[in-house]
Write a protein that binds this DNA or RNA. Structure first.
Lengths: 233, 233
DNA sequence: GTGTCAAGATATATTACTAAATTAGTATCT
DNA sequence: AGATACTAATTTAGTAATATATCTTGACAC
């Protein structure tokens, strides 16, 4: 049960089904949706379908205009930073570009976050990170727990920036970790993730912004490197 | 007409009204929504209300569970990077924290984006940025056009990273510019924004990643500085 | 050419109903 | 008395049929 970073099934399965068709490209960008046909295919009422469309519309995936019809919007207007959208995308066949982009965002955001965290972390923040690290150390062998604890560490770190918007990047990182797991499965037991994380934490605890930034940069650079090596680029 | 970076009225006014009430704190976090009461207050049908709720639910603002009720979620789960959410927030009384956080995200993302852009910008990207810069230079005195061109420049720059996720940060930047405009109104005509932007563009054109990063850092640092000075901190 | 008007199409809203899910209370049995 | 099983109440979720509002297109007049 590695559903640790899977959001609760907030929106019914109609949305999921529709989203999958669009995200996968089965229904391409620019296409006009045939609501009546979809209604039959998905075997739901029109109102239920429209509620699903409202969700997708809220995420910038479709646009429903009177008289003209309901269109799939270009991918550039999709809310790629939305947790659901990321999850739907990662559900399909693994997209190497997406993985690359996710890693890139991490390497932009996380070192900067570590820097801020070093300047602002409260005792509670530190305790949260410490707790996650302890659980990481104790989860050797149990891949599910390890990923959960890993994510918790990064979540706590982002929280320590005390910047609401930075905290939201959690979704990107969670998605990145989830997709990585789909690809790697059995990580090399030789490289223990704990020391590198501890290095970050200690720099933050010491309030050394530069050291924290650098330690985090090393961490995400290694992650990117691992990814590149595995995805065969 | 400074609606340049205002999204088309995608979702009806019911969503807007509900969103305002929640975002403003009138309906606080954790509150249980009384659908029947809201139905009357907003004077819409229940299905229309439910569609509005679906939109808010898609943005992580509320959570509707059968039998238990519909709850306002804690702010930490709201999709703060969503364009609509940002717009709704900036509609209310200006939140100094939000401005600060927006500026912080800019100062994290944009220098990194400039660096990537220097490595990847195509001729088209450069032309787009150049065009925006030209329009900036020609829009002296006309504040609306200036902001539009400014935003276009940053949009083009983000596009030049060729990273879908980074491109999405446009919403954050657009929101930041919009909120800044609400506050400053009449900018000091003494400081012309064009030279600093041109410096960034030229570094990108030259493919000098470090210079581009630095030039952009200088730019956003100055913006943050201006903001801090005005908002009276 | 430009503006106005009518017709057609389609998303949007309304009403009223049924179904499903889940909590809490109640009764029953051991 | 305590645990289990049943029942009721509440509230979201879904269905269906119908009406309305608004946008697009094309035609027609000016």
């Amino acid at each position: 049960m590695l559903a640790g970073y899977q959001l609760r099934g907030v929106h019914g399965q109609t949305v999921e089904a529709l989203a999958r068709r669009i995200l996968s490209g089965e229904i391409p960008e620019g296409a006009t949706l045939d609501l009546l046909a979809l209604r039959e295919e998905l075997d739901v009422s029109l109102t239920a379908l429209r509620e699903a469309l409202k969700v997708l519309s809220a995420k910038g995936i479709i646009d429903a205009r009177q008289k003209r019809g309901t269109f799939v919007q270009p991918r550039s207007t999709w809310n790629m930073l939305d947790g659901d959208v990321l999850r739907w995308r990662s559900a399909g066949p693994p997209d190497p570009d997406l993985l690359e982009h996710l890693a890139e965002v991490r390497s932009i955001v996380e070192p900067a976050a570590a820097k801020l965290a070093a300047q602002r972390a409260t005792d509670t923040d530190l305790a949260d990170m410490d707790d996650a690290l302890t659980r990481m150390a104790g989860a050797a062998g149990k891949p599910g727990e390890l990923v959960d604890a890993d994510l918790d560490f990064h979540r706590a770190l982002l929280g320590a920036t005390h910047n609401q918007l930075v905290v939201q990047m959690e979704r990107v990182i969670a998605s990145g970790l989830a997709m990585r797991d789909q690809v790697v499965h059995n990580a090399d037991p030789a490289d223990d993730p704990v020391p590198s994380h501890r290095k970050v934490l200690e720099a933050i605890r010491a309030g050394d912004a530069e050291a924290a930034e650098q330690a985090m940069r090393a961490l995400v650079d290694k992650a990117s490197e691992d990814l590149r090596r595995i995805s065969g680029h």
